[in-house]
């Protein structure tokens, strides 16, 4: 069964945005999405896109994303990312990507201690990436967040490097969680891995209040298979 667009969503025990992520990808690609369990050792062949969803994998034991990052399927995800397969991590997925070493920095407890669950304003900092090509540079968009540990931390040298290399994809346009330099989403050096705390999969149709998140998925699909 060769599909036109082969996307996979990984589910960890405690993931709770995996179905939303799959629906978003199915809406945009018109294809069924592979659902992959954390205990699987292998990914489906020839994937075009891998998504790590939000949630509370392994109950956030030890640190958010720490256990999931060491689960069997993540070895395959790290290997695929190394081959250039696009990987999107949202919320807990972002935490997993930092814990797995695919993205620099760490996501710490929100500066205000509280869980933050609301729509926030973001600024698109880099619109040259696979995931963000459909936005305009410096575009103001609105996407919801829902997290307790979204306070992005990296040392100053790392932050300077991320800024200098255009790897800050999104920045909060308002105070949300105490993140260093208001960073909401970062890219890896090769540009094929994006981690972000806001949930683009929750903004894919007008009934959800807007389509600012849909643009991200459309950008990736267009970039991978052509318009």
């Amino acid at each position: 069964m060769k599909k036109n667009f082969r996307a996979a969503v990984i589910t960890f025990p405690g993931s709770n945005c995996d179905r939303d992520m799959a629906v978003a990808l199915e809406e945009v690609t018109g294809e069924d999405v592979f659902r992959v369990w954390h205990g699987d050792a292998e990914l489906p062949a020839d994937l075009d896109f891998i998504a790590l969803p939000g949630g509370f994998s392994y109950g956030d034991y030890l640190r958010s994303g720490a256990m999931a990052a060491r689960s069997p399927i993540m070895r395959a995800v790290v290997e695929a990312a190394g081959r250039g397969v696009p990987v999107l991590g949202v919320c807990n997925g972002f935490q997993v990507l930092t814990e797995a070493g695919l993205l620099p920095g760490a996501l710490m407890r929100n500066a205000g201690i509280r869980f933050v669950c609301r729509e926030v304003a973001l600024t698109v900092e880099n619109n040259q990436s696979l995931f963000t090509a459909g936005y305009m540079k410096s575009q103001r968009i609105r996407i919801p967040v829902a997290h307790h540990d979204g306070n992005y931390f990296a040392d100053e040298a790392t932050l300077d490097r991320l800024e200098g290399e255009g790897r800050v994809a999104f920045r909060y346009a308002e105070e949300v969680n105490g993140s260093a330099r208001q960073i909401a989403g970062v890219l890896n050096a090769a540009g094929n891995v994006l981690g972000m705390m806001p949930h683009p999969e929750r903004m894919i149709e007008q009934a959800q209040g807007g389509i600012d998140g849909r643009v991200l998925f459309e950008s990736a699909v267009r970039g991978l298979v052509g318009a």
């Binding site: 030890l62 720490a66 060491r70 930092t98 814990e99 620099p104 920095g105 760490a106 931390f153």
Partner: peptide
């Protein structure tokens, strides 16, 4: 280094 501590923080 591999699990119990996150060496970034």
């Amino acid at each position: 280094q591999k699990l119990l501590a996150n060496m970034v923080i």
